[in-house]
């Protein structure tokens, strides 16, 4: 591993200054569960790692009437061990509680999962169906980006030189909102998704679906917001089997997987169809409870 310096700034501005100075040769470290593996594997040579966990904003969770905002370095366990959050943001909890094992969840978080930008990142699709926004800081100030626009390719994202993810924020879900995420893996735990689907629904007063989102994992170069799958559900009864079938078919259509050691194109499209129907039904069930 290339020998790097360790910097632990107390503010976002200091962190951005280090990242800007070193460009590609510096990276933030939150949980380190991807970064250190990649650095050791020679994917990149770093001159500095910037430990962002000493920056209060990066490790805080704020949940109030306007919504939820948590820092980019908040580890998974701090989300799923918070009973207030687990009731309101079920899709995020599904992801936080299945990434890696307990050791990984002590360190890894959804912010790092997003920044790693792997197509199979379990944390990314749940952020999308919860209408998440990425808060980004850089040399020229702050900007916000919808999570579905964050990833630009396998391991690539919209962060420019000197920029870092500060936090993720979400609108407060209505009382008739539900979301869910599940992936297919051949084991019970500790594996990378062959395919994954997150879905969310919001029901209107008549029990119809007012808003819906479906997002797909590990079936394209980036996580995919399958807009046609969501559109197939809007305005329909939450029990409309034909609409749910149509959403599954639209999601499979939106998937553009490759065949590799984890699965084939055909298997992955089939999984997307099945998981979409399951996740929509689970989201509806959660919306009603």
């Amino acid at each position: 591993m290339h020998p790097f310096a360790y910097v632990a700034p107390k503010t976002v501005d200091e962190a951005v200054a280090v990242l800007e100075k070193h460009g590609e040769r510096a990276r933030p470290i939150a949980g380190g569960t991807d970064l250190l593996v990649q650095a050791r594997g020679g994917r990149f040579d770093l001159d500095a790692v910037v430990d962002i966990k000493k920056i209060p904003e990066l490790v805080s969770i704020k949940n109030d009437d306007s919504g939820l905002e948590f820092g980019a370095a908040v580890p998974c366990y701090q989300l799923y061990e918070n009973p207030e959050l687990s009731a309101e943001y079920p899709g995020l909890m599904d992801a936080a509680s299945l990434i890696g094992g307990i050791q990984i969840q002590s360190r890894a978080g959804l912010g790092g999962n997003l920044c790693n930008s792997t197509p199979s990142g379990d944390g990314i699709c749940p952020l999308i169906v919860h209408y998440g926004t990425a808060v980004i800081a850089g040399p020229s100030g702050r900007r916000e980006l919808p999570v579905e626009d964050f990833c630009t390719g396998p391991g690539r994202n919209d962060l420019k030189q000197g920029e870092m993810l500060v936090s993720l924020k979400f609108p407060k879900p209505s009382s008739t909102f539900g979301a869910a995420y599940e992936r297919f893996i051949p084991r019970n735990e500790m594996d990378i998704a062959v395919a994954g689907v997150a879905a969310s629904v919001e029901l209107d007063s008549g029990g119809n679906i007012a808003k819906a989102r479906v997002a797909l994992c590990a079936v394209g170069p980036t996580p995919i917001l399958a807009e046609a799958a969501g559109a197939a559900l809007v305005g329909k009864s939450a029990d409309d089997e034909a609409a749910i079938e149509a959403a599954g078919a639209a999601a499979a259509e939106a998937a553009s997987p490759i065949s590799d050691m984890r699965g084939t194109v055909e298997q992955r499209k089939h999984l997307v169809d099945v998981l979409t129907k399951r996740m929509v039904k689970k989201a509806v069930e959660r919306a009603r409870s």
Binding site: I29, D51, G100, Q103, I104
Partner: peptide
């Protein structure tokens, strides 16, 4: 394994178990 899969290097830091191969000593 040195990549967070096997847990052989598990230690406890401030009450949480972690894979010590994926933590820096400086942290």
């Amino acid at each position: 394994c040195l990549d967070g899969n096997c847990g052989a290097c598990t230690v406890n830091v401030d009450g949480r178990i972690v894979d010590s191969c994926l933590v820096l000593g400086a942290e």
